[in-house]
């Protein structure tokens, strides 16, 4: 069973719909006991880092998350909170992955913030999460803050700067884009995650 964490910071409905489409059993919860029974965990997330961390702390999931050994997938803000720190309201995050989340600077190559729409993910290194997915496949993004290039990088995207759009550290995976909104390629990635051992 896949446990989807509900912490008032995500469009959970889309993730649920995507898993239904794949025919994968899942449940939604913010309870540690319940979530401990999950064989894999998804942390969705839309919104803002400080409130997301506050919400995780309020249900005592912040420490608990770091101790998990089952495959874990953070999506969008759910990936950003895996890092050490976010400059969004100067927020200390979970620290599973080293690095600081930054705000996009508007430039001629990236004139609009948020970075919104379909962009390519260039694969960096081998990872089961992207099994059967070509490098430079398109995924749907919507975010104003980004992860810098770090050791855990498995996919990069360019928007004014080259940033980490997918990361992998031990059992923790994170993607900045929304696989649940990225058509067939996104479903493929979720299927890969579901099939991880």
């Amino acid at each position: 069973m896949i446990g989807i964490i509900d912490y008032d910071a995500g469009n959970i409905r889309s993730v649920v719909n995507a898993l239904n489409r794949l025919g994968v059993p899942h449940f939604v919860s913010n309870d540690r006991k319940e979530l401990s029974k999950a064989s894999k965990i998804i942390l969705p997330g839309v919104g803002e880092a400080r409130s997301a961390m506050d919400s995780l702390r309020a249900v005592k999931l912040d420490q608990w998350l770091k101790e998990q050994t089952v495959p874990f997938l953070g999506i969008c803000l759910g990936m950003q909170v895996l890092f050490d720190h976010s400059t969004e309201r100067d927020t200390p995050c979970l620290g599973v992955i080293g690095g600081t989340i930054q705000l996009f600077q508007r430039t001629s190559a990236a004139p609009k913030v948020p970075h919104m729409g379909w962009n390519t993910v260039t694969l960096a290194g081998k990872t089961p999460l992207f099994n059967g997915i070509r490098s430079d496949e398109y995924f749907y993004f919507v975010h104003s803050y980004y992860a810098p290039l770090v050791r855990a990088v498995i996919g990069t995207t360019e928007y004014g700067t080259i940033f980490t759009s997918a990361a992998h550290q031990d059992n923790f995976y994170g993607v900045q884009f929304h696989p649940e909104k990225s058509g067939e390629a996104g479903l493929h990635l979720l299927k890969n995650f579901v099939e991880l051992c």
């Binding site: 409905r13 889309s14 719909n17 995507a18 239904n20 489409r21 749907y140 919507v142 929304h178 649940e180 909104k181 990225s182 058509g183 067939e184 996104g186 479903l187």
Partner: peptide, 8 residues
Amino acid sequence: VAEAIQIP
């Protein structure tokens, strides 16, 4: 619609 499609 949300059940039928996987785009925003």
